Simulated scan of single mutants.
Amino acid sequence: MLKGRVKGVYLRGNTYWFAKQVNGRRSFVSLETDDYVAAVQRAREIRDAPELQPAQSFRAEVERFLKHKYETNRYSKMSAESKRSCLNLFADSVKNIPPSNVTGYQCKAFYDAAKKRVAASTAESYMFTLRSFFNWCLTENLCRRNPVIGVQLDRIDRKGRTRFADSDLAQRLIENAPNDDLRYILFCGFHTGMRKLEIIEAVPEWFNLSRRTVEIRATATFRPKDRDARTVPLTDQFAEFLKGYGLRSPYVLQPDVVQGSHRYRFDFRRAFSDYMNAEGVPSITPHVMRHSFA
């Protein structure tokens, strides 16, 4: 005889369900498990805390979640946009139902479908985003458990870094750059390890030529990826270049270009790619520049 039975728990097919009664109305909740002990635990959670906060549609709760993350400085504007895309994909897959109605089976189906469309690491990142969202839902009392927790993720072989530019190649690319804007971009990447967005959003106040430093910190339009400001020494070569190039305002690179509807205020992707192809090193990207600095 099993101890700790909960009235209303029953097996339907291979899954345990819980029959509950609230205000004289009977309803049935899937406990999403074929294990009786786990089913009893989940039934008790529902019985002991039957009322959840009224929830809006999945997409509406996503917007609340992203607003919270942005206002508490956990997501940058760009990070929030990336997470929104993932969460809205999931919302479409579950017909935009409230978070409390989402099941582990639906999360597993979303993960399996994602693996057929995108790289395994990208599908994994989708699940991490979903897990974070449902953890927030728990704190907001919008659901009783995180349905992503039970989804088994594939083990991914992580490849080590293989692409970088040595100092001779970096120097050659800087010297041969067809214009000073591209030369500035190369200096930022190879000599300070700036990320692409940091290069684009850099403001003159970051640079201290007398102390030979650049402090990458938050501005009105930018938040560092790791949320913390960091100070990087400026090489003599980069500092000398900046004296001639000029610390223009409001942005050092292409100061007259304002933010539009695109992801970047100014995107140097095409010019950068064309130059690397012309130099015979198409594998060099802004990310590789940062790796090479590190």
Rank of each mutant, 00 (worst) to 15 (best):
M127T: 11
S85W: 09
V148H: 01
L173D: 05
G8E: 03
N14G: 05
E175K: 12
Q41I: 13
L2P: 14
L173P: 00
M276P: 05
T33G: 07
R290A: 12
R217Y: 15
L130R: 06
A109P: 01
D168R: 15
A271N: 03
E279S: 07
R217F: 13
E51C: 10
V22L: 02
N176C: 14
L253T: 02
D35M: 08
A113Y: 02
K3L: 15
R74F: 02
M1G: 14
S273P: 00
F110K: 03
S121C: 09
P178A: 12
R161G: 10
P99L: 10
F222N: 03
Q259N: 11
Q56C: 13
L138T: 13
R47Y: 03
E205C: 11
P233H: 05
L247I: 02
C188N: 09
R131F: 00
S125I: 05
Q152C: 13
S121K: 14
L31R: 04
G260A: 01
A39I: 14
A202W: 02
E124L: 01
R145G: 04
M127G: 08
K116I: 06
I284V: 14
T103S: 07
R64H: 14
R230I: 03
V9I: 15
S27Q: 03
L52F: 08
E61N: 12
T192H: 04
D226V: 09
A202E: 07
Y36N: 07
R195N: 02
T285D: 06
N73Q: 11
F134T: 07
N277C: 06
F58I: 10
R269G: 06
G246A: 07
C143A: 06
A278M: 09
V118R: 12
F65S: 06
L209E: 01
R248Y: 03
F241I: 03
A43Y: 11
Y126R: 10
K196L: 06
V40A: 13
S57A: 11
C137R: 11
F293V: 07
V37E: 09
I216M: 11
Y36P: 07
D256T: 13
A38Y: 10
E32T: 08
T72Y: 14
R42K: 13
Y16C: 03
K196F: 13
Q41Y: 08
L11F: 05
Y251P: 08
S82L: 04
T72L: 07
P282V: 09
S30E: 03
Y264E: 11
L169D: 11
T213D: 01
F222H: 09
D112F: 01
Y251G: 04
S125F: 14
R163K: 15
P178G: 10
P233Q: 00
P282S: 10
E51Q: 12
S132F: 03
N23S: 05
V252E: 01
N141L: 10
A80N: 03
N96R: 05
E81Y: 10
E61G: 08
Y75K: 11
C107V: 02
R64D: 12
G24M: 00
S30W: 04
Y105L: 15
G160I: 15
E81A: 05
